[in-house]
Design a protein around this nucleic acid. Structure first.
Lengths: 247, 247
DNA sequence: CTTTGGAGTTGATCTGAATCAAAGCAAGAC
DNA sequence: GTCTTGCTTTGATTCAGATCAACTCCAAAG
């Protein structure tokens, strides 16, 4: 990695961007500058953050909760093009209009920076630009992985792939190995899932049911899914596992 | 834009990256440093530049010709995830292995930089990182546009969308308005087109034939396509035209 | 010239996912 | 309690695009 491994050596605790996106190398003075243009916003589940084409005078980092980027065609067909998890970045420096609909799919807290001063800071503090580049490249890789899913995978594989991603994340968060049973909390409704995977909500429901019948997963309420055998799921996902890149 | 509008104030003429990707703000000394780690490579149409997972000790910029990024599943299903046009950037600073198969779809010339020294230059010359960020964000937007195409558009719309992109590019290159008849030279075979659009080559062929029968386009040889009425094509593509973002 | 082979087209058939339609199920409102 | 209401599941049917299979075209090789 260009950047030293992310660390929490700056104690602040409440704002992901200070930890991850921006500040791993900030000194106190620089931090103070960021601090000056920072503010928080929170949204209830389902709320819109901005609509595509609207003025957007801030950039932001997700602190907690999950936000979705979606594109919509005139006739109503929708495609989710990004899922923003804590520490992910929203908004494009140098652009004034939102390029996508941004909505909160769960309760959401974002740490925002007014755009003008943030852009000035990018120029003044080169390591912020580096970190942004690093993050953008990661998003680009994720988007390309998703293109393979959208273009070539079957409904069954799409569902399995998505659950695999959530499961890996879950395992990483709790520092557990992916061996034992993993409990996933779906952050999306069936319809949102369909919009993410390029399917209809009926197909999503059917495929989840099919996997349940086969014992690959168990439903825990409506949003919970437990995966007893992660390898089986990964197998169904059809992912090119050796494609894991070591940075 | 973060960066001042791209200009050719540095006269070199033979290398896109010096014009566009990197050097719009370089002074002579900085240019010399870039020059020292630069070399050219050319590939015939169809040649592989690198395979996914291989060691890749350089980054590069396309000078002329077109390269494709593709992902492949174990069973052979392929999805193209990027089309690199002149001045586009290949390779990720900080990563040693290629993440995708990179192949030349036409005769291709690339301007390469050895990776280690290039990475040092990124740190030393902040505006290079800015320009890379700018380019990566553009690619991310393009990828997300493509996700909508792959997930939600019909075969007919996919073909029309792709031709629209080529036509717009063609019109921009020749500084012509998109009003009159545009002649497009397809840089891909039907099979590559299918891999790009998430279709089979038969469907691609059928849809092109259908558009020809309807008079939306004319075939000129095998690779040439003329579009008498660009608006009609754009209409079929179903693009959200008002989504055009002003930077 | 003929042969060969790669690229493209076209046709017949099949199938996975969409569409249309009807229940089921839980949580909150009243 | 029972009535909404939003989300989800399930079933029947349809259809766009995949698959399988010929066939055409053209350029390069012999």
């Amino acid at each position: 990695m260009l950047h030293q491994k992310l660390s929490n050596h700056i104690s602040c605790g409440d704002c992901a961007i200070r930890h991850r996106a921006v500040c791993a190398r900030c000194d106190d003075d620089e931090l103070a500058q960021l601090e000056a243009v920072k503010f928080y916003r929170s949204y209830p589940a389902g709320a819109a953050v901005v609509w595509s084409g609207e003025q957007m005078d801030f950039v932001a980092s997700v602190v907690s909760g999950i936000a979705a980027l979606t594109q919509t065609m005139e006739d109503g067909r929708r495609q989710m093009v990004g899922l923003l998890l804590p520490s992910d970045f929203v908004g494009r420096p140098g652009r004034n209009q939102a390029a996508y609909d941004v909505t909160a799919t769960t309760e959401l807290v974002m740490c925002c920076f007014r755009k003008k001063p943030f852009e000035q800071l990018i120029v003044k503090l080169p390591h912020i630009a580096h970190r942004l580049l690093e993050m953008t490249l990661d998003e680009l890789d994720a988007a390309r992985e998703w293109m393979l899913l959208l273009g070539r995978k079957t409904a069954r594989e799409k569902i399995a792939s998505f659950l695999c991603i959530l499961a890996r994340r879950e395992a990483a968060l709790h520092m557990k190995s992916v061996g034992s049973t993993i409990l996933i909390e779906l952050p999306l409704t069936r319809e949102e899932l369909a919009d993410y995977l390029g399917l209809t909500l009926e197909t999503v429901s059917r495929q989840i049911s099919a996997l349940r019948r086969e014992g690959v997963l168990n439903l825990v309420g409506k949003r919970g899914i437990s995966v007893p055998d992660f390898d089986a799921l990964q197998d169904i996902a059809g992912d090119d596992v050796d494609g894991a890149i070591l940075s």
